[in-house]
Design a protein around this nucleic acid. Structure first.
Length: 493
RNA sequence: GGCGGCGUAGCCAAGUGGUAAGGCAGAGGUCUGCAAAACCUUUAUUCAGCGGUUCAAAUCCGCUCGCCGCCUCCA
């Protein structure tokens, strides 16, 4: 089966056929660096991270461009508020963005250009647009004339007349048509500026993405991504500028991710109901957040809540617990990696072997279907269930049993590499979750260990009253004891 | 008002023509001194409602109801 992607432009799933066989060019609108990123940014970036990883996994040579928009009204406003140069702001939030993405385990894009490094390219496009009659200068500003581009609004499927009717009239407008948008803005005193044929100024929003994508991916490229909210006006305007300037198709496949909701309402800056990535990571492990994001299809809305994050953590914990159990069996033994034969048809070994053989196909089928990570995770869970059963059933772990488990372990690591999950040492991850949980309790891990020893001594002496007393006391503090043949461990509830 | 999307079990969530993945929570069982954890079994004759097309519909079409998004900065 081949990769199919949902193209916003056509409104349908299409078979992905790259412009150049074996290669894929992908541009994703990055952030405007004037504030800390919220979990909506986390979602967009995680989603396109797995799209990038999966394209590579599927064998494409991918050029992935993700920009920083480092000049913009909001940046200037913030700089003015703080009384600092705009670059102080952009440098601070570029660093913050990089830290956040690193913690979320994102792969580095091929290029991460900044708008301010491409002013020449921006000016060149604007000059071409003016020369072709698609743009006009007006009192130091330059605007794109939407009426000169008949296909305007083809992405968002709107109607120009109706939008004009509803457009807001701006005071002292320099536009010929209220729907025209700025390519270049003349600078006011005290604002950052660059020299241009129309005087000192700075680029408008939208034009930087046209310039940077063209620079690194060419006039036509395969995939352009971003959040749903960028469809209009940002991407619509990018199409107008780029196609009017170059006279050819701009993007082949438009991909847009759905929103993060809070209590079923869109999370946004203007509503003030947003959480920054940093705030969330104070309470939840980064991989849990990533797992939560990937547990739904990228185009669906997801509802962010403590309960949903707790459920995601429980699910991820189940997978890691299984991996830890496999690792414990495999510890210190060399395995061949060959799939063994000889499991009787009714046994868990036979079933697990079957799951292992079909696993990669199921994963690829899911991801080929418009990057359906939720379905892919379903396949992982099924494998985990059967592996757990195998671990519980098997009397002794002979060479073929270990080889089978090693194969399962390898497969989960392989798809984990594509999803950016399961990359931690299972034991370390589980310990980390415990430690984080225990950090919120008023009891130290040492104290817990001491009480476990005391309880086990009491139990050995068949003093179950004392033993249960300790167990109940710890449970009250949120510490769950786990008894097994190997001894007693604990976890934070 | 215009355009677009969504409505699947108590909750989260796949499934877009062939007879409902998976997770969480719940119930019963195995294990246990009793528990917890783990494992096993189980939990939607049915996909918001009504009508239509079809041998066959959660999936396609129409209508109704409900929710949401974009139309203004936004991932």
């Amino acid at each position: 089966m081949s990769l199919r992607v949902y193209n916003t432009l056509s409104g349908e799933k299409e078979t992905f056929v790259p412009q150049v066989p074996g290669k894929a060019g992908m541009y994703v609108c990055g952030v405007t660096v004037y504030d800390y990123c919220h979990i909506g940014h986390a979602r967009a970036n995680v989603v396109f991270d797995i799209i990038y990883r999966y394209l590579r996994y599927a064998g494409y040579d991918v050029t992935y461009v993700r920009n920083y928009t480092d000049i913009d009204d909001k940046i200037i406003n913030r700089a003015n508020q703080e009384g600092v140069d705009y670059r102080v702001i952009t440098e601070r939030f570029i660093r913050a963005f990089d830290e956040d993405m690193e913690r979320l385990g994102l792969a580095k894009p091929t290029v991460e250009p900044k708008a301010t490094e491409h002013i020449d390219g921006i000016i060149a496009i604007i000059e071409r647009l003016i020369a072709k009659g698609h743009a006009y200068e007006s009192d130091g500003d330059v605007y794109f004339a939407v009426e000169t581009f008949p296909e305007y609004l083809k992405l968002s499927k709107r109607n120009l007349e109706e939008m004009q009717a509803g457009a807001r009239v701006e005071v002292g407008d320099r536009k010929r048509n209220p729907m025209d948008f700025a390519l270049w803005k003349g600078s006011k005193p005290g604002e950052p500026w660059w020299e241009a044929p129309w005087g000192k100024g700075r680029p408008g929003w939208h034009i930087e993405c046209s310039a940077m994508s063209m620079r690194f991916l060419g006039e036509t490229f395969d995939i352009h991504g971003g959040g749903k909210d960028l469809v209009f006006p940002h991407h619509e305007n990018e199409i107008a500028q780029s196609e009017a300037a170059n006279g050819c198709r701009f993007v082949r496949y438009w991909l847009h991710n759905g929103f993060v909701n809070i209590n079923a309402e869109k999370m946004s800056k203007s509503l003030g109901n947003f959480f920054t990535i940093r705030e969330v990571l104070e309470r939840f492990d980064p991989e849990t957040l990533r797992f939560f994001i990937l547990s739904a299809h990228y185009r669906s809305p997801i509802d962010f809540s403590d309960q949903n994050l707790d459920e995601a953590r429980a699910g991820l914990e189940r997978i890691y617990a299984c991996l830890a159990a496999i690792d414990a069996v495999l510890a210190g033994t060399a395995v061949t990696g060959e799939l063994p034969t000889g499991f009787s048809p009714a046994s868990a070994g036979h079933e697990l072997k079957e799951k292992a053989e079909l696993f990669k196909d199921r994963f690829r089928d899911a991801m080929d279907d418009d990057f359906n990570s939720a379905q892919a995770l379903g396949a992982v869970f099924e494998t985990v269930r059967v592996a757990n059963r195998f671990l519980a059933e098997a009397r002794e772990m002979d060479a073929s049993a270990r080889a089978l488990l090693a194969r399962v372990r390898e497969l989960i690591a392989e798809v984990g590499g594509v999803l950016g999950l399961f990359g931690s040492s299972p034991k370390a991850w589980l310990d980390g979750i415990n430690a984080a949980g225990a950090g919120r309790m008023d009891i130290s891990p040492e104290e817990i260990e001491r009480l476990i020893v005391e309880r086990n001594e009491a139990r050995k002496a068949r003093d179950f009253r004392r033993g249960d007393e300790i167990r109940d006391m710890l449970l009250e503090k949120g510490i769950q004891l786990l008894d097994s043949a190997q001894g007693t461990t604990w976890k934070a509830k």
